[in-house]
Design a protein around this nucleic acid. Sequence first.
DNA 1: AGATAGATGTTCT
DNA 2: GAACATCTATCTC
Length: 215
Amino acid sequence: MEKGVSDPEKVRKFLEGDPRLIAPLILGAVLTHKSEAGPVAVRLTEVEAYMGPRDSEHPDPGSHTFGGPTARNAPMFGPPGFLYVYFTYGMHYCANIVCGPGGSPSALLLRAGEIVEGEGLATLRRPASKAHKDLASGPARLASALGLTTADTGRDALASPFSLWLPRTPAAAVASGPRVGVAGPGGSTDYPWRFWIEDDPTVSRYKAARPRNRA
DNA sequence: AGATAGATGTTCT
DNA sequence: GAACATCTATCTC
C-alpha cells in the first residue's frame, strides 16, 4: 500500500473544496478506525457527492440537507473532515465525510471500498460476507466493516481513533455517473454525483431502488 | 447465475 | 408514507 498524505491539517484543507472535485481525488484514500477490538482500514473505491442546496445549481433532493438543518444532519453543517453517520432502512448505517467550507453543507458518502487492514475483524462484523471484495462493497457494508454507527456521527475522521490517508498519486482510471432510481421532483439522476475506480471489484453494483411494500 | 419478494425500524416531510 | 440497503429465501432460466 502506497503511503500518502496523512497530516490532518493538510487533509482538512483538501476537504474544504467542492465535493465534486474532491471525489475523484479521494478515491484510493485509506480510512482507518481503531476500535478496542483492533484496527480496520478501508481503501475507498467509490464515493458519492451530496451537495447543499446553496452550493449547487443542480437541485439534490437526495441530500439529507435538502430540507435544511435538522438534529440528524447537524454534522454536515460543521467543518470538513468530520463524520456524518446516519441510520437507514431500520437496520443499516451509512457513513459520510463532511467536506466543503464549514456550513456548506456538503459531504461525500462512502459507498464502497476494499479492506486493507483488519480483515479478520471486518469479517466478524460482516458474517454474511462470503468474499473479500464484498466486505465493504456498499455504503452500509462499508460502515459495518469499519464498525461505524450513529455513535460516531460528528466525530473527527482525521483524529484518533480515526485516520485518513490521501493517496500520493490519484487513481489511474476514475469513472463517474449519475445516481439511479432516485425518486422525487427535479430528480438528481441527470448529474454525475458518483465516482468510482474503474474495474475495481469492490465497487458496489447498482440496482434500481425498489418500492417497498407496507407491512 | 440472476431476478424477485419480504423483512427490518429511524428520521423527516 | 417514503427513504439511493442488505440479507435470506425462493423462484426462473
